[in-house]
Nucleic acid binder design. Structure first.
Lengths: 339, 339
DNA sequence: AATATAAACTAAATCGATTTAGATGTCAAG
DNA sequence: CTTGACATCTAAATCGATTTAGTTTATATT
């Protein structure tokens, strides 16, 4: 049986409000009573009921992160896992709970609405934003605090943390072009995701500024995982005129592509160059190590969470929006174009 | 402003309890009133306050998963990420919230105690059990429902899901022995973890039943991550008489070891065999693909969560304990011993 | 001595639901 | 015409906290 104020009140022979005020160090309690109450509370291991408190305060004491339905990967995406690490730590520091939920395929918005109406949560962390994102429409409409990781393509007047994916991929193309590559392929994530779209733009921008033309047959839109990367690479390497370099929109796709190239006996970094994006912890430990674009995933998680907590507390926010300019990490998977 | 029973009551001109009973389909409400109340509720988008309900029911409507402090990896451990996927899905199906928290380094037990006393949670999922696990002592003492992933070394009279790591690693040793390997090294996770300990036992058992002797210099106890695997492999390969096969206690360690071997110009699977454990999604996509032991991480997560939910509901449990017998997955990273 | 003031406490209301016990009105049976 | 049964509803209590508005008692002031 958990200990309540009533239990303490009974023990010290005082009323419940007195006990409450004694524990809260209010002025209208005599030093003796206060000491006695606090002693008994400690002795009984009293801890206020989070639920009762939340009812009174009309807060949930929790923030919510709903993993989107379309992400078959959910937490197994290493980038997202790192991001989650950051969120969990930032939230734990403030003694707020993190509610983690999986969105059902049908309609994630119903889930958001339910959480809002049942007042389970004080705010949301929105991940994997889409170019036209109904979740964001909804949250804005409902006036619920939220911070997104990523932007949308429309009205971006909300709090978010994002990366400049366009600049990131353009750096990759620069790098490959400087190595003499002229047939560069691109493996894209689904383009309804804002970040996939931005990265794709970076690819086109990179081609352009290096005076390379865009070959539609060298552009593949696929899913998130390694399997897709492998399949896409198989298609590309089977082309009559295969690319000498493959830019993948994320590291998992790149690893899948590398696997395909290697199982064809190609040496990655020599016969074909392959690059990724995100710099997940693994990239350093595959062979050859992956040339990629670094993102501080955990820091993104921290930032998003901290912004959200401030937003909820209506504390002043130094910055409502943050766009990280990523940097290139050159490793062994990219090398000079073969002649 | 969220909609409450009071709002509905005002609208239909009835008392709050009547509204409550109408929504709950109780018998003592006239069909007309019931219909009217339900109509208005729908119209206003009424959803009961989760907090008020929980206060009344004296339940939290949530279960808790606290990532242990010693796990520097937390969610970035791909096995754990998969496990979490399973948990999240099983829990979401039952409309229960999952509270994810990070344990501070100092004392995780204090965190558990706090969550128990403040009645934030109805039960716990305990991961990365230790041979002598204070969290389990505590939960048992407090009589709080919990399910562990993994056992302890003492009294195991509680609900858990586990793998038979001993059998798993022994399979690996059998496999390597059958390929002619006689100098087999082992890279272990920290041995205070039950699962690390079990796997280590499997290594010794495997050696024994293949009539191989245990060489202390071929046994390295280290941490979880790739970096440790790499360092351990460096040490092993620098030995005057290096091993021909390296058994790593998990896939990340194995990938680290592979990286070290490859950066020395060795061909993994020919010059040296390397094996892992867990069969994380990545193992299939490195080159050569990793020989490992398969564990259905996501299913483990589901099982643990489902057990916990039943335990909380005091529903009958067909089985309180489940030990999975893992199977070997042979891929390219293991091959015949060089002569 | 009467009154104002301060100290230390408590009753009652509140948050948003549910449940228990009781109230009211209608109708049929005696 | 009274009584009992039934249908339908509401008042009050409860979960565990906090806050507001008093209340009581002792002390200081005039």
């Amino acid at each position: 049986m958990p200990v309540t104020l009533k239990d303490i009140a009974r023990r010290v022979g005082k009323s419940v409000p007195t006990v409450s005020r004694a524990l809260g160090n209010h002025a209208d309690i005599s030093p003796e009573t206060r000491a006695e109450v606090q002693r008994v509370a400690r002795e009984l291991g009293y801890e206020p009921s989070a639920i009762a408190l939340n009812l009174r305060r009309r807060r949930a004491g929790a923030v919510s992160l709903i993993s989107p339905a379309h992400a078959q990967v959910r937490f197994s995406d290493p980038f997202f896992a790192e991001f989650l690490n950051g969120v969990v730590e930032a939230v734990a520091e403030q003694h707020i709970d993190l509610l983690v939920t999986a969105g059902a395929e049908e309609d994630v918005e119903a889930l958001y609405l339910k959480q809002i109406r049942s007042r389970r949560t004080d705010g949301f962390i929105v991940v994997r934003t889409q170019r036209n994102d109904n979740r964001i429409h909804l949250l804005r409409e409902q006036g619920v605090p939220f911070v997104a990781y990523g932007r949308t393509e429309e009205n971006n007047d909300f709090c978010f943390v994002d990366e400049d994916g366009t600049a990131g991929i353009a750096l990759v193309v620069d790098h490959l072009a400087s190595l003499g590559h002229r047939r560069i392929a691109y493996i894209s994530e689904p383009l309804f995701l804002t970040k996939a779209y931005h990265r794709m733009l970076g690819f086109r921008q990179g081609l352009e500024r290096n005076h390379l033309s865009f070959h539609p047959e060298l552009f593949v839109e696929t899913h998130f995982r390694q399997r897709s990367g492998r399949q896409a690479a198989a298609y590309l390497l089977d082309l009559p005129q295969p690319p000498t370099a493959i830019v993948a929109a994320n590291d998992l796709l790149a690893l899948g592509a590398m696997h395909e190239a290697q199982s064809r006996g190609l040496t990655v970094g020599r016969d074909v160059s392959i690059t990724g994006f995100d710099d997940i912890p693994l990239t350093e430990y595959v062979h050859p190590a992956l040339t990629t674009v670094h993102l501080p995933a955990q820091e993104f998680g921290r930032r998003v969470a901290q912004m959200l907590l401030k937003l909820i507390d209506k504390a002043p926010l130094e910055e409502r929006q943050f766009i990280y300019r990523p940097s290139l990490v050159v490793r062994g998977s990219s090398g000079p174009a073969p002649i």
